[in-house]
Write a protein that binds this DNA or RNA. Structure first.
Lengths: 220, 220, 220, 220
DNA sequence: TATGAATGAGCCTTCATTCAT
DNA sequence: CATGAATGAAGGCTCATTCAT
């Protein structure tokens, strides 16, 4: 979230303002992500987001028409907008479907689970029911594409004769469960009892996925 | 929260009012539990709690000096205050330690997991970090005694030579993990995607505990 | 709008609070009428209304859920709520229909035109188009009943063979026109050019009505 | 407000920009008139005026130092600035004074009453009291010259022995009254009850003026 | 003991005006 | 000249808590 060294900001003062203009949404999004993750949706004040981005309250509303829109932009920026890329990566995967499941889970941890983006998941689980419009947005932009992505992965295994899945939906939830657990652990238990040594996430995922695959793979 | 048969409420009208007085806190506590679980801590209005308990806002503050104190009383009434009883039950358990672990987890589901009390866990995970005083209270009154209880159970297995546990804390977390998962599933995933068929909790617990015991029990 | 001498406020301090409670809505309505008439709807701040009624901002919202509702209550209190009474008075009028028209217009001046209630008319003409919900409310609660009332008066003349009216609606507008003019004169012209001697309203009404009746009455 | 054919805008590109520059105020004034009339003074946002004129908000403030100044310029452009011309026309009128009164009223309808300029009158009646500086400006630049103009017309009748007027001011108001009524009708009643068939303005004026002249003309 | 009227700090959002580029 | 990013004061509304009755 820091502002890295940027030669433009030194050499060409003329470009400063326009650069700023381009950078603003990103700075606001970044500040908003920080604060939403730290305090949740309801408890985050737009004025504080603006202050952290180094602008006034009014400026924030220049870029986002409402607090809700700001949150949605944060969700898009950090999760929803990336499904296209992830789906594409899926097509090019060379290995077995079991390897693909492992790969996908590890990727999730690296790109979402261990980043602040995971905090968004926590927010939606915590406050979603209180903000129906946000919940609907999240359902459409994150949950639905996410489920579709996992279903595609499992379908690949089915199509190649690698998996045997009596219930595809159930299998999807089995993959989601450890992700949810890790997120809640990180943001809730770890936040409550910071003294405790946390679960080591990667081995945890490895173990869980192995267990699941044991039940999903076709026995030969 | 149920109102058990009380002879006083029949025999003498003078005792009625005092009965009422004694019942007040319980009615408030019950209403508060309902609403806290439904809306979370911050989004629950004390006025609504009072209204649901059939009293005025002022009366609530007669029994509980603040919203925070009300929540703490709810926590005590539903979870914290029961550890003494649970610890006592533990002493009398006749079977093996493996059976005790199974028993304890089933009991948790019946007395907490499947009741509204589980909602308190969800609230603390969702909003705990925002209300440090509440988090500290919960840590002292629930988490610490809960861990101690689980540790006692496992220690029993160690003392009797039934378990082999290189890391007691880690084993405790392994038992907590499925409980947290079930709670979050119930209050977040199930709340978001109500169409989905839920996990069957008792078999899920059974399976998880068996898996854990497999690694904890002394091989003979 | 002043608080007249009230023996209750001296002799029985116990009754003070409850009296206050009953008086509040009236005091707020009165303060609101003053300010709405003085500044218009948009420019009136609820906080100022509350202050003028001697209470805090929050108290106002105890009695009226929104600024809009407050305004509607003012309209009902001062105009809309009185049509029942006015309609009843109409039934008992003993004289000719021409006399009734004169009487109705004089009554309007005394009960609306010369009171602050006329300011509401000015507000609706000035700001109605900007607040569609208010305009709709006013249309239903004031304009429609008002037109109906005038139509009943004219219909009485038709039924008794006193009037000859090719177009009833047109005749209604002819009666409304001088009322509107007087209101605008009072609140706008007179407000702009206070130095000018105002029109004398009663003679003006008399003249206008005579002119209209000249065209409406059946020649014999 | 229309943009008439202008050869400069075709022949030379260098002149284009300067033409543009000269046209700017007019385009802004035109956009401002539209929006002020549509929404009133307070509810019109300068940004929207600028947008409708096709320039940026900053540019508007280059030509008009404030919203108030913009409104004043609109008033001058559409009403105040034309009194010189109207006064001149008056001197050349060949007919009787009664004809002149009729002529003046018809001219008012054609040049003000039926154009958007009448909206300015409505604005001043609606919002004048809220913006004292605007009201003072309007008083000086429109009301005073307007009254003077009407007074000159009536004075002509007196000087020529055509009229008999015990009270000149009162006669002036008699002429203003129907204009005000028509404006309010157009912008308020017609806006509220669009279904109603409107008054036909020219015959209305004719009738009113005839009535007034009846009382003003010297009987022979 | 019980009531509920009253409070006031706090939050999201708007918009005229400024000024660096 | 022209731009449009930035400001910040202001306003409608909420709600935990107090206190006179």
């Amino acid at each position: 979230m820091s502002t890295p060294f940027d030669p433009l900001s030194i050499c060409c003062p003329t470009a400063r303002r326009s650069r700023r203009k381009e950078a603003r949404p990103g700075e606001l999004l970044s500040a908003a992500l920080d604060l939403f993750v730290e305090k949740g949706y309801a408890a985050t004040r737009v004025e504080e987001v603006a202050a952290r981005a180094g602008v006034s309250k009014g400026t924030l509303f220049l870029y986002f028409p409402s607090k809700e829109a700001l949150f949605q932009a944060v969700v898009r920026d950090n999760i929803a907008g990336r499904f296209a890329e992830w789906n594409a990566e899926l097509d090019d995967f060379p290995g077995t479907s079991a390897e693909l499941v492992h790969h996908a889970m590890r990727q999730w941890w690296e790109r979402i689970g261990q980043t602040q983006a995971a905090g968004i998941t926590k927010i939606m689980m915590s406050e979603g029911p209180l903000f129906p419009e946000l919940a609907a947005f999240y359902q459409n932009e994150v949950i639905a594409p996410g489920h579709a992505l996992l279903r595609r992965i499992l379908q690949r295994g089915l199509d190649r004769g690698e998996f045997h899945l009596p219930n595809l939906d159930w299998a999807v939830y089995s993959l989601i469960a450890p992700m949810i657990f890790l997120v809640m652990w990180r943001y809730s238990m770890a936040a409550c009892c910071p003294s405790e040594r946390a679960i080591d996430p990667l081995p945890f995922i490895e173990t869980q996925v192995n267990l699941l695959l044991m039940g999903m793979q076709v026995r030969r």
